[in-house]
Design a protein around this nucleic acid. Structure first.
Lengths: 248, 248
DNA sequence: CGTTAGGTTGAAGAAGTTCAAAGAAAGTGG
DNA sequence: CCACTTTCTTTGAACTTCTTCAACCTAACG
């Protein structure tokens, strides 16, 4: 479990290594995640100050578990740096990768508003720093600054849309199609460039797409043989025929 | 498309057949859905009045489409009576059932807060009445009554949790397990009773669980042969061995 | 009461999983 | 920086699960 400190106490002392990067950037918010994440960074300085008051900070070493299924959930976690893997274990014990959090993303939402038990696991993929807000503090903030709710609602609806799309994909498309559309989306996110690095291991990709590493490996080879893509070392992938990939 | 009327103008005239059921129930809110749905019914009467002002009402005959993928989305739809099927069409043209809305449920959320194009289809399963609030009206309400946001956030997080669970199920469990856990949940919702009616056709169930009607039919027969359940007429199902079903 | 949509059943074939084994990459500690 | 260990990845082959198609049956609906 990560060490937890009251961030308020440290906000001007820069007790963390990462602060070095933030020195001299202007206003006093750079030291916390408040000014970094989309759900808060639209607020006025004074409002941010109020949030900073209730935020706690915590860090996790690579491989550490942030929370487990069954844990009581009473905080919202916001990633400040690093990456967090969110996954589930099915009844039959298989792992299913739900999503990977990057800086600015948050998790812990489910339990904040409805139930209070986590159903998924959160694991630091690399050394990771997070900000935490407790349920009650957050609810106070939401009542006080309704615009935060709108931001979170916006993020929720985006995520819901994505999750439902993912369900539809896994339940109606065959593996090859799922892989193809995943690759296509990687390109879209890269905005044009036909070359990119897979955002996760093929093992995780298999888990995310609802298949096995063996099948991923085979299907990628097939796509390569058919001339749609080329695989480089270190998970590098180059799309050779985007349109062909779509139809495949 | 359903006929649309400004509900405000009619709220005291009872232009709708259903109003007959509501006459004489006490306060003036029973005629609209405001007092019926969880996201609004916790408010004060005066606040509800304000919402009633901006609500429009609309009704759809069985089989009518409420919205289609690709339509611009600018309203939240709240089901007042009837049922609405939400489904997606995959790139390969297959239909995937996302959820079925009952009275009190809402949809249209995605586009209200982030994108503005529907990715799914909404179809009235039976004659259905809905209340609608436009995006801008809703956003005003949310800023004015922050507690509404909390309700919607709560519903979103519940739905998100459910959707992610569904994704995990479809991607890690085999069909028989998915069916078994679906049946188990039907029992849980019925709170104890081991007998219930499938909430949808087996065709829709197949689409919801990511399989085919043929497979559903076969697996249910198998479960029956193995003594876990008994199928009655009219989609009636009785669970004979709940624990066995869990492990199967 | 006939028409249409939903449901069942069989048989054949496709798609994906599993297991085993070996090779490649990444992390660990000297 | 190297050697070592661990984890990830690839490949083959047997096997399982599920889909598909076609036929037939049954319930729902105008």
């Amino acid at each position: 479990m990560g060490k937890e400190e009251n961030y308020k106490l440290n906000r001007d002392k820069c007790a963390y290594g990462h602060c070095a990067h933030n020195h001299g950037y202007g206003n006093g918010h750079h030291e916390s995640c408040v000014s970094l994440v989309p759900i808060f960074n639209h607020l006025e300085d004074e409002q941010m100050d109020e949030i900073v008051e209730v935020i706690k900070s915590s860090s996790y070493k690579k491989g550490e578990i942030v929370y487990s299924a069954g844990d009581k959930s009473d905080s919202l976690y916001i990633v400040r740096s690093g990456r967090i893997r969110i996954y589930r274990l099915s009844e039959s014990g298989k792992e299913q990768l739900v999503r990977i959090l990057k800086p600015g993303d948050f998790t812990g939402e489910l339990a904040l508003f409805s139930e209070s038990i986590h159903e998924s696991y959160a694991e630091a993929v690399e050394d990771t720093k997070v900000c935490m807000i407790t349920r009650s503090d957050l609810q106070n903030l939401l009542m006080k600054f309704p615009s935060i709710s709108l931001k979170i609602l916006s993020e929720f609806s985006r995520r819901l849309e994505e999750s439902e799309k993912q369900t539809a994909r896994v339940s109606t498309e065959k593996v090859e199609t799922r892989i193809a559309s995943f690759l296509t989306e990687c390109v879209n996110k890269k905005d044009g460039s036909m070359e990119f690095v897979l955002p996760m291991s093929k093992k995780d990709l298999a888990s995310y797409l609802g298949t096995t590493p063996e099948t991923i490996s085979r299907k990628l080879s097939e796509l390569e043989d058919e001339g749609y893509i080329r695989q480089g070392p270190h998970r590098k992938i180059k799309i050779l025929d985007l349109d062909g990939l779509y139809d495949a």
